[in-house]
Amino acid sequence: MSAANRRPVSRSGGERSLDTSHGTVLYLEGLSVSFDGFKAINDLSLYINDGELRCVIGPNGAGKTTLMDIVTGKTRPDEGEAWFGQTLDLLRLDEAAIANAGIGRKFQQPTVFTELTVAENLELAMAGNRNVLSVLRAKLSGEQRDLIASTLERIGLVALRDMNASTLSHGQKQWLEIGMLLMQQPRLLLVDEPATGMTHQEMAQTGELLCSLAGDHSVVVVEHDMDFVRSLDSPVTVLHQGSVLAEGSLDAIQSDPLVRSVYLGE
């Protein structure tokens, strides 16, 4: 279960070449994982296309977060395969290697570095060489300063750039974490409940931001809020008891009797 036994693969965070020649960026095939006999993920298969925006919904305990844990290397599945592009076997990489390969994650509970300032949080997240010596010698170039400034603007935290992150509100932390995700410049973004704690206006902004990312990036959004999902106007995957229950447009999903019975007990 521990990711500690995985082979650490040292990759520079800079230029990444990902073989997506078949148009698929993430293959998950027959994944199963159980905790103490409880099957959190049960024979789950999921394919995300290059540049796609996908919503994953499902009731509590459907395995959404565990799914993200597997993709980002936090949890190792008992069975199944997970490939990033054509060539990268995610099950053989640890968290850092996966992040460097180009998968970024925003957590359900926003996790930022509270003792650092907003700008410093972004600086740490910024794509670049991650090995200790280069981090030690790293200095912000003018270009990088501009990137941080523009990201601050994008997430609306310009005024707070030198504040400790501990002083931010829940919604501001969400934004900061999204900002960190942007700084990472990942190929695939896993976004876990980004709308929690946001006003309707902020939610709309987040939706716009995520939609604008799609195309260059692939985005997987896990969300509870149906209005937010609707605003994204993207294909939806429904998870139930650790496997995929249905896939399709939101309207199609909502009229699916199987989904209705799971959600509404009909």
Binding site: P8, S10, G13, T72, K74, D94, E95, A96, A97, A99, N100, G104, R105, F107, T111, V112, F113, T114, E115, L116, E120, E123, L124, A125, R130, N131, V132, V135, M180, Q184
Partner: peptide, 19 residues
């Protein structure tokens, strides 16, 4: 900065790609 980050939220730092 990285040390502070590691001290406060080590697992989060890993997801940023740092060893």
């Amino acid at each position: 900065l990285l040390c502070t980050a590691v001290r406060d939220a080590e697992s989060r730092v890993r997801f940023l790609g740092y060893r």
